[in-house]
Nucleic acid binder design. Sequence first.
RNA 1: GUGGGAUUAGCUCAAUGGUAGAGCACCGCACUGUGGAUGCGGUGGUUGUGGGUUCAAAACCCAUAUCCCACCCCA
Length: 440
Amino acid sequence: MATFVEPRLPRGMRDIVPQKMILRRYVIGVIEQVFERFGFEPLQTPALELAQTLMGKYGPDAEKLMYAARHRDGKEDLALRYDLTVPLSRMVAMNPELVKPFKRYQIAPVWRAERPQKGRYREFYQCDADIVGTSSMLADAEIIAMIFTILRELGFQEFVTKLNNRKVLGALGEYAGVPPALLGGLSRALDKLDKIGREGVREELRKNEIPAESIEKILNLIALPVDDLATWREKFRAFPRGVEGINELEQVLQYTRAMGVNPARLQIDLTMVRGLDYYTGPIFETVVTEPKIGSLTGGGRYDGLIGLFSKNPLPVTGASVGIERIIDVMQELKMFPDNLGKTVTQVLVTVFDAERRAQSIALTMNLRAAGINAEMWYDDDGLGKQLKYAAARGIPYAVIIGPDEAASNVATLRDLATGEQQQIAQTDMAAVLQEKLRHL
RNA sequence: GUGGGAUUAGCUCAAUGGUAGAGCACCGCACUGUGGAUGCGGUGGUUGUGGGUUCAAAACCCAUAUCCCACCCCA
């Protein structure tokens, strides 16, 4: 007796069945197209990196979520990549001959040992696009415009992108006299403003041992209208970093406007923080509120990261698009185009009986030669079973060659959706099907 | 990593300590040249897993796994 191993998946990991892969491929296809339209080129890097490559880049919280790996002989400490940004930085540092600005995109799985939830998995795909080698805010603006293009082409109407700047965040701390060591706590508290409100933030700041005086200054500051950049510049007069951040915000707004980005969908939010340590300039994040699933995209500028791998640091800005969440949201909101279908197969060629099999085989191969995705039936079964199969799979057309058809070299083409049938010369079948499939 | 909820047929869910059920799906027949309609019949469960309490456990207790929710963080 064979003993079976109970088939199970590791926590937070999933299989993606063919029907789901069709949706996934559609989303990735749109993203890839837009990336390339904006001049980004594909890049692939290994799933495993040396642990030392990844350590110390994301912050201590993130590092706890990194998967460790090793060779059998244990000679190198390895880790599954946590994102695509640090591997890009490593790769750019290793390849100084790359022509700058270097624009690459990468669509690949990353791994994080978080507690899984909806829209939150331990293995998930990120779609990243980054621009290496320019400090111009035009690049940051272009990234944002590209994100908007992607979301729009996928059919998203209701979304808001929040824009902030790490320099402003830093200046906020300086202005309020928060000791640099407590800046992390300040950021985390600010980040929660949406959820816990003003008083909640006050409480949170107190818990983080931020001086009472500073707390008042901060709360007063974030109560100011965010759009009034002149006032902010004035407030930050004594803090050059803050002025620089405000100027960057202004430039990003100007450039995105020039690119046709709807200003109502791009909002400055000085309490939007983002968790990763490596950001240095503009940061942004796109959220949908319905359904509530967290951020769909996020990104920002990280001018210091390559400097950790090379004596020649390079400025970089980029974004990550979360296709897992996009797919979850699109399914929930039924945003996928109807013509996507359940299967890639376009026609099933049935086999009437042994005598007629040869004609069915020939016709199948003939359709395939014409570029049509065609299946044929393998076993000796009635037409009923074969058509039932086609219907269950969502195959749009079936072809039947019985004794009547075989006698005159025609075949019956059945539209599974409508039940309509017509007889077509076997030699014309490919052309007729191609025409019909064009309108599907 | 912390706290809460869930887990029974392929799917959605019933059964409150006493014989494990329904709908849908699947298979077959009515219908051996035609799927989705209807009718009839059928297959399918060591109740997530491992212990314990009890004459008796799907149910009560303990542990464990996975999923969901919140926190944390994020795509």
